[in-house]
Design a protein around this nucleic acid. Structure first.
Length: 937
RNA sequence: GGGCGGAUAGCUCAGUUGGGAGAGCGCAGCCCUUACAAGGCUGAGGUCACAGGUUCAAUCCCUGUUCCGCCUACCA
């Protein structure tokens, strides 16, 4: 059989396509609910069905996949549930945009036709992200792909809704809510993004009703004829129904109970005292109250029984029927959007002398998190979840450690939000989503009906019938005319059920009992509130147990400058482009290596390039290995008697890597795992071990030695690939496929006689050889010292040299002697002398490595000036270290109080440094002597 | 306004029980040495933001200051 030659450079594309296809066809990612193995389960944070893979997804799913693959190799039956959510608003926007291009709108189409269109869109173009996740290598159980709008999951949604309603945890009420005038729907509090802007504070005078008003307004008058209010939203004054002052404010409290004339209207509104709303220090100390358009004013209105006058329609345009407003004014602003109306109102107020002052003012405005439109507080009937009883349980679960949040710092964020939680507005005025299972009897609610777009809507006073199935008749009056509530549920409502609805709930499935609670949830901090907190609440409520044991919160991916990536900034890095350019493995490894806990990831392409190089390094390691083993494969080897020092050393270092990677993955320290494996493969296995055994592999040290070296090389490579596999699934699979399985057998592709690397057990640390490790370290030090001399003395890399090693330590001499071939090979030494300290050669560069004094005779080639500089530099460094340690050791307090191991260590160190110092000084002396001798000639 | 996090090599960042400061990239020098130039060898570079405190010992713990981020909040 011919040895398979690998290409000189790793080509990810073909490899990824091949294995991706193969693993999917063979269904290697499937969980087995009947398995005897212990379960490990995760649910994917479902991406929007409209979405395409961005950096956040890539990081999130890479980390999940690393865990999934690791746990699989550790012998777990891994279930990783994939799927998408229906993304109510976003999806509806997409389809509406398409309709718009066709010249249709959804109202013309009608609700059911529209929903059909959305489903059609979903089938055709939805879920592109699923393919992209597969491309990323995500080893989800694709046979269990879920969708929040599927009939099964919809059933769970209805069930949860009805039960919560029956328990009084869901109710309907009319109050101010956050309204997006573009999406035309209510939003929950957390769907509003606050943004600080520099706005204006407008001062407007409201004339007191009971003061003589016959004379023209005189701005310089000292008699108080008016109250001046300050506002950021002058246009809402048309909806004012009171002015508030602080009851303790001596400037104004005499006006409480009086009335003012609202400018631009014929409305008289009361002056009221309210200590909650009014801050004495701010503005003028007098506040206009617009209960229908401001959350604080709404509350104040409730406290004082004020009327609510809405001045905007659902698109935040001025309504025609605002009571009391001057018709001239209405004519000017009718149907203007709020911000246009503001300009007009200010203009009119100014003209009429009501506007007294305008100043800059920083304040926050709310924007729709989907479309960035400025949100408008809007009065309407909505459905709410009463969350306090649920959040109490959810807090306890984390307090008691039933769910662990990693890194722990995020617990504060979680608790903080849970403590201040407000009822959750769950109804949305859109069509795509789970329609609320509530119906209204026309007869019973005939006074509560109002029409919007020809649809019947019901006020908060209407009495709904909430039911799992559509009622045929009204349970109260038997009436047959029944209308369903138009609203749909917040998409996050269905996401909250994801960890159990995807496992078959409300049925008591095998999966549910086996995989719930899930083992871990991996997600970004930006959806702790949206998703994690709500899953906790709902999971505890309906499953009586937490939805997951661990929550690992990872960072956000930013660009190299630390900016959040966004399309508008144009700084997005497309993961698909990156994967094309550098390969998926390199990309995944980069994300893993940069996923340090508690810090955002600044992604720079150079970093990815570096790990692409690492892939190539691994590839060439494999290539080298294949070139150096028997075509018949490698013998199996159990006995360690034939292990060389290098063999024992690399096995020991491998063990260290195995331990580090294992601990790191168990504790979600993905960057540590990546760095350990990188360090090991590149800087220990490739840089040292491979170089050390090249002679062995060439047969220079006998056939036995050759076979053993081959065996160890293959073993270490295979274990390295296994360690690496969770992070780099493709390249490891490809190499695994061509490596020898056992004695006499080689990989022939597609695991002839073997299995996929993902089905292999994760490496376990075997026997350590601590002595070999120490000895190897001494040798490496000596080799590095000689290399240093070579470089500093400008000896051509191709030239061989002579070296003399003196050591007073017989053990060390024995080591150097028995392993001299390593020094000769790696330091390119042709003539190596090892002995007890004797006469120091004169024309030689010198270096100290541990107890070994190394001389490189340079017969006239030596640059004394350079050598002196080099030695002086080394000496200086040693002196500095020595000084530090000696100072410590001369401190009685240190000797008395520090642990004796620490003191002992420092004492040994001083000894070593003193020795080194003496030798360097000697060397320096010699150089100086020679130099002066040379000069004398 | 409240809360959280960060400040370590030119850049991006590690540094978990306080005990000789690390990596990657970049930079400089020398090398196409038959696994790999997407490579090898060598090297330069840090008062660990600042000021105090605790300790025999502080990059690490405590306090304060400065400068950055982020989250959160109804001061009109």
């Amino acid at each position: 059989m011919k040895t398979k030659e690998l290409d000189k450079i790793y080509n990810p594309k073909a490899v990824e396509e091949k294995w991706s296809k193969y693993c999917l066809e063979k269904e290697l990612f499937k969980a087995d609910a009947d398995s005897k193995k212990p379960p490990f389960s995760m649910v994917i944070p479902p991406p929007n069905v409209t979405g395409s893979l961005h950096m956040g997804h890539a990081l999130n799913n890479t980390l999940q996949d690393i865990l999934a693959r690791y746990k699989r190799m550790r012998g777990f039956d891994v279930l990783w549930v994939p799927g998408t959510d229906h993304a109510g608003i976003a999806t509806q926007n997409v389809v509406e945009k398409k309709l718009h291009a066709e010249g249709v709108d959804r109202h013309k189409l009608g609700r059911s036709k529209f929903i059909e269109r959305v489903w059609k869109w979903k089938e055709e173009s939805g879920g592109a992200i699923i393919h992209q996740l597969k491309r990323l290598g995500a080893s989800c159980d694709w046979s269990r792909e879920q969708f929040t709008m599927s009939p099964e999951l919809s059933r769970a949604v209805v069930e949860v809704f009805v039960r919560l309603y029956e328990e009084g945890l869901i109710y309907r009420d009319e109050r101010l809510i956050n309204w997006c005038p573009r999406c035309l729907t209510a939003l929950s509090d957390i769907e509003v993004e606050h943004e600080e802007v520099l706005g204006k504070l407008y001062y407007i005078r409201y004339r007191l009703a009971d003061v003589l008003t016959s004379q023209p307004l005189n701005l310089s008058t000292s008699i108080i004829e008016y109250l001046t209010v300050a506002t950021t939203r002058p246009e809402t004054m048309l909806g004012d129904t009171a002015v508030a002052v602080h009851p303790q404010d001596e400037r104004y409290n005499k006006f409480i109970g009086k009335e003012v004339l609202l400018p631009l209207t014929s409305r008289r509104i009361p002056v009221i005292g309210d200590s909650i709303l009014v801050d004495l220090e701010f503005g003028t100390g007098a506040v206009k109250i617009t209960p229908a358009h401001d959350f604080n004013d709404f509350e104040a209105g409730n406290r004082h029984g004020l009327k609510r006058i809405a001045i905007f329609n659902e698109r935040a345009h001025i309504k025609p029927d605002i009571p009391d407003v001057d018709p001239e004014v209405i004519k000017e602003i009718l149907d203007l959007h709020a911000h246009k109306a503001r300009e007009r109102v200010i203009h009119i107020l100014k003209e009429k002398g009501f506007l007294t002052k305008v100043e800059d003012h920083k304040h926050a405005i709310g924007k729709c998190y989907r479309c960035k439109t400025v949100i408008e507080p809007y009065l309407s009937p909505q459905w709410y979840v009463k969350v306090k009883p649920l959040s109490d349980e959810a807090m306890k679960a984390v307090e008691h450690g039933r769910t662990k949040i990693v890194p722990q710092g995020w617990e504060n964020t979680y608790f903080e939000w849970m403590r201040n939680i407000k009822d959750w507005c769950i109804s949305r005025q859109i069509w795509w989503g789970h329609q609320i299972p509530a119906w209204y009897c026309i007869k019973c609610n005939k006074n509560e009906i109002y029409e919007v777009h020809g649809e019947k809507n019901f006020t908060a006073k209407a009495r709904p019938v909430v039911s799992r199935t559509e009622p045929k008749t009204c349970p109260t009056c038997g009436g047959k005319e029944i209308v369903r509530d138009n609203d749909v549920l917040d998409t996050w409502f269905s996401s909250a059920l994801w960890p159990f609805s995807t496992l078959g709930w409300p049925d008591r499935t095998k999966e549910l009992s086996r995989y719930y609670p899930t083992s871990a949830l991996i997600t970004g901090f930006d959806i702790i509130f949206f998703w994690v907190a709500r899953m906790m609440m709902v999971g505890l409520k309906f499953m009586n147990d937490v939805p997951f044991r661990d929550v690992y919160i990872h960072a956000l991916v930013r660009d190299a400058e630390g900016q959040k990536m966004s399309k508008s900034k144009g700084n997005v890095i497309d993961p698909l482009v990156i994967m094309d350019k550098y390969g998926t493995d390199a990309f995944r490894f980069t994300l893993s290596a940069m996923a340090a806990q508690g810090r955002d990831i600044k992604l720079a392409e150079e970093r990815i390039e570096g790990y692409r190089n690492f892939c190539n390094k691994i590839w060439n390691l494999a290539r080298f290995t294949l070139m150096n083993i028997q075509e018949s494969g490698v013998r199996s080897q159990k006995s360690e008697v034939e292990y060389s020092l290098a063999d024992k050393w690399i096995l020991t270092r491998l063990n260290a890597a195995v331990r580090e990677v294992t601990v790191a993955l168990e504790t979600y320290r993905f960057n540590d795992a990546a760095n350990s494996i990188y360090q090991f493969i590149w800087h220990e296995l490739c840089d040292w071990y491979v170089e050390l055994i090249k002679g062995d592999l060439r047969g220079e040290n006998g056939e036995e030695r050759k076979k053993t070296a081959q065996y160890i090389l293959v073993k270490v490579l295979k274990d390295s690939l296994k360690l690496l596999h969770p992070m780099m699934p493709f390249i490891t699979e490809e190499i695994w496929d061509v490596l020898p399985i056992e004695e006499g057998a080689r990989g022939k592709g597609q695991w002839a006689g073997g299995k996929s690397i993902m089905q292999q057990p994760f490496p376990k640390a075997s026997e350590d050889y601590p002595d070999a490790e120490k000895e190897m370290n001494s040798l490496m030090e000596a080799i590095k010292a000689i290399r240093n001399i070579r470089s500093e003395m400008n000896i051509a890399p191709s030239a061989t040299i002579e070296a003399i090693c003196y050591s007073a330590d017989a053990t060390v001499r024995a080591l150097l002697t028995s392993e001299e071939r390593y020094i000769k090979t790696l330091a390119k030494v042709s003539d190596l002398k090892i002995s007890a300290p004797a006469d120091r050669p004169e024309n030689a560069a010198v270096a100290i490595a541990g107890s070994v004094e190394i001389f490189v005779p340079l017969k006239g080639l030596i640059n004394f000036y350079e050598e002196e500089k080099r030695l002086a530099r080394d000496l200086e460094k040693v002196m500095k270290d020595l000084e530090g340690v000696q100072r410590k050791l001369s401190d009685e307090n240190f000797l008395a109080r520090a642990p004796k191991e620490v003191v002992e260590k420092d004492k040994i160190r001083v000894e070593e440094l003193l020795q080194k110092k003496a030798k360097l000084e000697e060397g320096l002396e010699r150089i100086k002597r020679i130099k002066s001798g040379n000069q004398a000639h």
